[in-house]
Write a protein that binds this DNA or RNA. Structure first.
Length: 914
RNA sequence: GGGCCUGUAGAUCAGGGGUAGAUCGUUGCGUUCGCAACGCAAAGGCCGCGGGUUCGAAUCCCGCCGGGUCCA
């Protein structure tokens, strides 16, 4: 690895290689007197108050200076990608510029959009959320300016020397003193790749990282970095990252990155929060400068570390931690809000819908955190106003302004939801707190975790509310990591794909989607799995199930039950292992009805998606879909429930699209070209691998799709939407049927309707009214019934009182009442036992044996226990029972022994009286 | 993708195998010139839906539907 950094460029330009005495890493510098590597904590920030470039830049002028510099040096400028990584299924957010080109460009499968290229890619990282605002340098959202160069053996554009040279020249162009620059050696590894890398340090600030990615992770590889083993790759990539915000900061030398990057919004927010932010006041600026310097050299995650930082800063500027805290906390919150609102502008602007899962959850996390900070500062301005400020501040992203109406609605809804959660939470906390107050205990940690984990109530709020109720809580520093621990990580299972050393199967289903029969040669037979040289059988994929059908040879036929695509080799699984062998010529026949139903549902899915977008808005994005022969479902990102009206409208539009009988266009296109032409909407149904992708166009819907489709929309037949379902917050599912399945569904519904109206002897039109009337009447009868039972009970009591037997001063009544249900028995028994000295033992036979015993107050005092009596009696009739001493009920199945049970009941009372 | 919580009167919620409750609100009566306040009374429940267990389910179990929330 050492040799990797022996660049000619360094040698020719008078660099010397030194080893940092503190961290022991090697670095290159033009100034032989430089002692340390230039990276905190070995050195601290020196650029604050001493800008490193010859003039000040803001975000847009810095970005432009960078991009045009690289354009001038032979690079093509490429548009930014969205912050939500739509083209990836392994990460939610775009975390680096290279993420734009993973995995297919970096793997060499797909050529880059340009080579070499330069880009300024907005990135979002939420790892250090707590440090944002406090450290003076952390941001959730930043633009990674980069130049990338994709080399392969025999086709090298440029590699290490040229990369360092470009960096050096750029810094020189910006007026940076090159003697102050150090290139620190620091091998990089991540996401299965690795390579040598240098960090570019100026004034104690890491301005850029130049990564030379030429290794891939291989088990037992010969090169070891950070505990993993790697091998050289055939393609090797220049992956650079220049922090736009850091360049701006370095150009201004302001106390914090926030004051450098968004001075206007910071000052507006300070006004709203009523904070005097006099960054020109040297004393004030010194406080934040010192803070940033110290924070630059230490880890400030966790309360303990933060306190340590506060202490250091307080000591240097000669104040107390308390005073410092009071001054800094609100300002830090404003910084954080500024950053977070920018993050939200990007997230929502790029179409993330807040939700409780996936990327949507991250958006909600940031949004709620921002609201919390605003509340602490008592900023009454609606959040959307601040986000709008940000959006207006980015003239370079006009796409955000187009979405403003939707963003407004989303933010308003989210604010409402959060307020609800807090309100609900506060009540719950109060209740919980009172519970512990009664017990005179502290509220335990487990309770705090529970409140946060299941109800989303931040522990700080719990503490506050509990305090008001006079209950202390136990809140350790490590709270959030304790929560994280509770969610034990479910290890992701690696699905081991069967790798077959066979030629790729020719996909006849792509060549002619109307064909039902074909001939092919058997290439391999593994148990009941058959691999052919060509096939019409569509393998399961893209939410479309596998084709079924038969494979046959002269005298035998095998049913194909499943078909899978193993990296281009299509495997037919048959339900028996009758004897095909290598080299056999077979005939295949697919179950056309099944296939046609799939094709209809698949094309219909695209149409419903398009219709939903037209009705609900541009933010609609497919997050999943599944087809079958009789129905299909489509999951869409949407921030509220689909109304009945919208539902009908979507159905109508979908059927209109069918009736227009539009052609369905299928083209194989170069991936990069397709992305350029249509954008990432292509990947709604998933991200297909490969250089060439199959593009399907129906009406205005364009998607990368590997499924089989009908050739014209008219062939779909009717589309019947069945229902919507909210599978997650922010994700709506539409279920529908198409073609014959739709007709069947409609018929089924008609039948239900007919059956229902037949049952009530009315026509379907009158069904709703009639049902309502019946329901109302049913409720009335129920009430009346209850009233009558109560009356009946009274009458029965009067009539039967005379039959009571005296036992030691108690009146014991034991009686079988024909056909009375439990309720009647209870009512009668209760009525009896209103008399203190009465014990009523009642039984009936209605759907088995029912027994009710009630004892008056005096009887109970004398030891009569209704529960005990019922238990014993019920045992006799083959059941069980129980209740309270005053009233109990039970029963069994053996009606023949009712009399016996009643006798036993009386006997038990007299036993008590002895 | 993986968890956790939750659904009871118009609203907020208790209860948690054995006769469905409280508070507020509503209506009526009383008090008042009238209102507020107060006193008394009443109406208002498929205990989310469907299965299962049980003599008996609002309560336990399973599934579905709805709402909430955390993590990756």
């Amino acid at each position: 690895m050492q040799d990797e950094y022996q660049l000619d460029y360094f040698k020719e330009n008078g660099f010397v290689r030194k080893t940092c005495p503190k961290c022991k890493t090697n670095f290159w510098t033009r100034d032989a007197d430089t002692e340390f590597c230039g990276d905190p904590p070995c050195v601290s920030y020196s650029f604050i108050g001493a800008p490193v470039f010859k003039k000040e830049y803001d975000i847009s002028s810095m970005r432009e200076a960078y991009l045009s510099f690289f354009e001038k040096h032979g690079h093509t400028r490429v548009d930014r990608y969205p912050v939500i990584a739509r083209w990836r299924d392994d990460i939610y957010l775009t975390i680096a510029s290279i993420a734009d080109f993973q995995p297919f460009v970096t793997s060499g499968l797909v050529p880059p959009p340009a080579n070499p290229l330069t880009i300024s890619q907005p990135c979002i990282r939420l790892d250090d959320l707590d440090a944002v605002g406090r450290s003076g340098r952390h941001l959730t959202t930043f633009e990674m300016m980069a130049h990338h160069c994709f080399n392969s053996r025999g086709n090298e554009i440029y590699w290490k020397d040229r990369t360092v040279e470009l960096c050096d020249t750029l810094l020189a162009d910006l007026g940076c003193d090159l003697k102050a620059v150090t290139y620190k050696e620091n091998p990089w590894a991540g996401g299965g790749n690795a390579g040598p890398s240098v960090e570019v340090m100026v004034g104690g600030l890491e301005l850029a990282t130049l990564v030379f990615m030429d290794l891939k992770q291989v088990k037992g590889g010969s090169i070891e970095i950070k505990g993993e083993t790697y091998e050289k790759m055939d393609n090797y990539i220049v992956d650079t990252g220049y922090g736009l915000e850091r360049f701006v900061w370095a150009s201004k030398g302001s106390p914090t990155i926030y004051d450098a990057v968004f001075p206007k919004i910071v000052s507006e927010l300070m006004d709203l929060a009523g904070i005097e932010h006099s960054i020109d006041n040297p004393e004030y600026a010194r406080m934040f400068s010192q803070n940033a310097r110290f924070a630059g050299v230490m880890d400030i995650s966790g309360q303990a570390n933060l306190l340590q930082l506060r202490k250091k800063v307080a000591d240097t500027i000669g104040t107390t931690v308390e005073k410092l805290q009071k001054l800094m906390v609100p300002v830090e919150s404003v910084y954080a809000i500024t950053d977070h609102s920018r993050c939200l502008a990007f997230m929502l602007g790029d179409g993330i819908i807040p939700s409780n899962v996936k990327a949507g959850y991250l958006a909600r996390l940031v949004l709620r955190r921002t609201l919390r900070l605003m509340k602490e500062l008592d900023i009454r301005e609606p959040l959307i106003e601040i986000i709008e400020m940000q959006i207006k501040n980015f003239p370079e992203y006009p796409e955000f302004r187009e979405r403003l109406d939707t963003i407004r609605e989303i933010v308003a809804l989210e604010e409402e939801k959060y307020a609800d959660t807090i309100e609900r939470g506060t009540k719950l906390v109060k209740k919980t707190a009172l519970h512990f107050k009664d017990k005179k205990e502290k509220m335990p940690l487990g309770e705090l975790i529970q409140l946060y984990d299941t109800h989303g109530i931040p522990p700080e709020i719990t503490r506050e509310v509990a305090k008001e109720a006079g209950v202390e809580v136990e809140l350790p520093d490590t709270f959030y990591s304790l929560v994280a621990k509770k969610h034990s990580k479910a290890q992701e299972e690696e699905t081991e794909g069967l790798t077959l050393d066979l030629p790729l199967t020719r996909k006849l289903y792509y060549e002619d989607s109307e064909q039902t029969e074909f001939s092919a040669k058997v290439l391999e037979v593994i148990e009941n799995k058959i691999i052919l040289d060509r096939t019409l059988f569509y393998p399961e994929g893209g939410g479309q199930p596998a084709d079924h059908g038969t494979l046959s040879m002269e005298d035998y036929v095998a049913n194909v039950a499943d078909v899978q695509n193993m990296n281009g080799v299509i495997v037919h699984e048959t339900d028996s292992d009758i004897g095909f062998k290598k080299g056999d010529a077979v005939k295949g026949k697919i179950d056309w009805e099944r296939r046609l139903a799939h094709m209809r549902h698949h094309t219909a899915t695209h149409i419903v998606n398009e219709s939903a977008k037209a009705v609900l808005g541009k933010h609609i994005w497919q997050t999943g879909a599944q087809k079958s022969t009789d129905r299909a479902r489509l999951d869409l990102t949407h921030f509220k429930r689909i109304t009945d009206e919208e539902f009908r409208e979507i159905e109508l539009l979908a059927n209109r699209a069918v009736m227009k009988n539009q052609p369905v266009y299928i083209d194989w296109m170069d991936r990069i070209e397709a992305e350029k032409k249509y954008g990432f909407v292509l990947y709604q149904g998933g991200v297909p691998p490969g250089k060439e992708i199959r593009i399907l166009r129906v009406g205005s819907d364009v998607e990368a799709c590997g499924g089989t489709h009908v050739s014209n929309t008219g062939l779909i037949g009717p589309i019947k939407l069945i229902k919507t379902e909210r599978i997650q917050d922010g994700v709506e599912r539409i279920e529908f049927s198409a073609g014959e399945a739709a007709v069947k569904r409609m018929q089924e519904r008609d039948e239900l309707l007919n059956k229902a109206s037949d049952a009530l002897r009315v026509s379907p039109e009158h069904l709703p009214d009639t049902v309502n009337r019946f329901f109302d009447e049913w409720k009335e009868f129920k009430k009346e019934n209850e009233r009558l039972k109560a009356e009946l009970a009274e009458v029965r009591v009067k009539a039967m009182m005379g039959d009571a037997v005296e036992i030691n001063g108690l009146k014991v009544l034991s009686k079988k009442i024909q056909h009375a249900d439990v309720e009647e028995l209870i009512k009668a028994a209760t009525e009896f036992s209103k008399n203190d000295d009465v014990v009523a033992i009642l039984a009936s036979e209605s759907g088995g044996v029912k027994i009710v015993v009630a004892a008056g107050a005096r009887a109970q005092k004398l030891g009569v226990n209704a529960g005990a009596i019922v238990r014993e009696m019920s045992k006799l009739v083959g059941g069980g029972g129980g209740g309270k001493p005053g009233i109990a009920q039970g029963g069994g199945t053996d009606a023949a022994r009712i009399e016996e049970a009643l006798e036993r009941g009386v006997e038990m009372v007299s036993e008590k009286m002895k």
